[in-house]
């Protein structure tokens, strides 16, 4: 069973990763336009849903408020700080002194040709 709250790594390596790298995650969920026999259907989760799914609606709301009521900015900054602070490759190195400091997630996004939206 896939739980509603999944680790951020799972999210990163999932299909949302492409939209994250491209900087195209919208604030709200995206639905297909309605047409006869085809009611609207969810086709992409937005930053608000993604962030709420990870940390709950109250915490997501607080983060959005701290980021000027911008869920896209809140989601990106939350994910960046979580990865940057939570994933430290030096912890897994035999000799951490021989490893360069790992670049931050926004820098990595730029390095692989992605887009970091400006807010």
């Amino acid at each position: 069973m896939v739980s509603e709250r999944k680790c951020c790594i799972c999210r990163i390596i999932s299909g949302d990763a492409n939209r994250y790298l491209a900087g195209t995650i919208a604030s709200d969920d995206t639905y297909t336009p309605a047409r006869p026999g085809h009611p609207p259907r969810l086709i992409a989760r937005g930053a608000k849903s993604l962030l709420t799914g990870q940390i709950g609606s109250a915490a997501a709301g607080r983060l959005a408020t701290q980021n000027g009521n911008n869920y896209v900015k809140a989601h990106r900054s939350w994910l960046s700080s979580l990865i940057d602070n939570g994933v430290n490759f030096k912890n897994f190195a035999c000799d951490p002194t021989k490893l360069d400091n790992v670049r931050t997630l926004p820098d990595l996004v730029t390095a692989v040709g992605g887009t970091n939206p400006t807010f």
Binding site: R11, I13, S14, G15, A17, H38, R41, I43, R45
Partner: peptide
């Protein structure tokens, strides 16, 4: 339809071909 990739919940729909014309219902 796994819109969020492998680890996310899919968007589930029903194709009903008994209807005329057939429908795709979320």
């Amino acid at each position: 339809d796994f819109i969020g990739g492998f680890s996310d919940l899919p968007s589930v729909m029903l194709y009903d071909f008994r209807k005329i014309p057939p429908v795709a219902l979320p």
